[in-house]
Design a protein around this nucleic acid. Sequence first.
DNA 1: AACTTATCCAACCGCCGCTAC
DNA 2: AGTAGCGGCGGTTGGATAAGT
Length: 241
Amino acid sequence: MILDQQVRRGNKKSMGGVAWTEEEDQLLKKCIDRYGEGKWHRVPLLAGLNRCRKSCRLRWLNYLRPNIKRGSFAEDEVQLIIKLHKLLGNKWSLIAGRLPGRTANDVKNYWNCHLSKKLSAQETDKEYQTARNIIITGSTKPRFQDYHVAPNSLPAIQESSKSVPFDFIEVNQQGHELVKEEMEIREQEPAGGLFVGDLATEGRQFEEFDEVNVLSRTDEGCSKWDWDDLMLDMDLWTDLL
DNA sequence: AACTTATCCAACCGCCGCTAC
DNA sequence: AGTAGCGGCGGTTGGATAAGT
């Protein structure tokens, strides 16, 4: 079935729209190869396509772009999606950014088809509540004190389709989004505590990081690419601090 | 075999933030 | 300050197909 679905990909008409043909794909690909990404408003003209800029961009990002990973999600990818979703909410592009080869649309579809139902049943699960408390209330310590937001005033994660307020996210000089929660953990824990920087430099397992239940991983379920990716993020966090 | 239901996912829509003028 | 144009994002839809009856 998975194979069939993969074969189907890209050949389908939906939403009353017109399915992309092989010829159109080639035209778009040649155009991007020649002129590069961006300037999407010019792409239809340059490529000679009777498509709007958004369709061209979407087709490229979700289907034609190199290194797009096909097939079902691996277990470690699923676990990462779940954890990132706990942290970020429906920020599919951010989540997909931590999953090389996966598009935001893929992640979103996978979540909607597989995970949302599965996890909604676990809404009251203790572990989930713990994670949520950490995000919303900051566990046993008051958090978000620097942001002047009363924990109770924050919208719940998961209960609605709306995502976590973007006040949780900051962008550093390199343009990378950082989760304020992480920075606060770093700031509030005393020396000797378990910090992102410590993990990065001492090579501890993420499992130890479970006390904050953020991006916790074990070596067993952590492939090289996401480990490296997370290490990169940690470096960036450390640089910021 | 015929029909119904469930699942998957590509593509569209509307909105938002940013930038240039 | 207002606004138009753009890139980008998340929510949603509906067609294709598999699975079930």
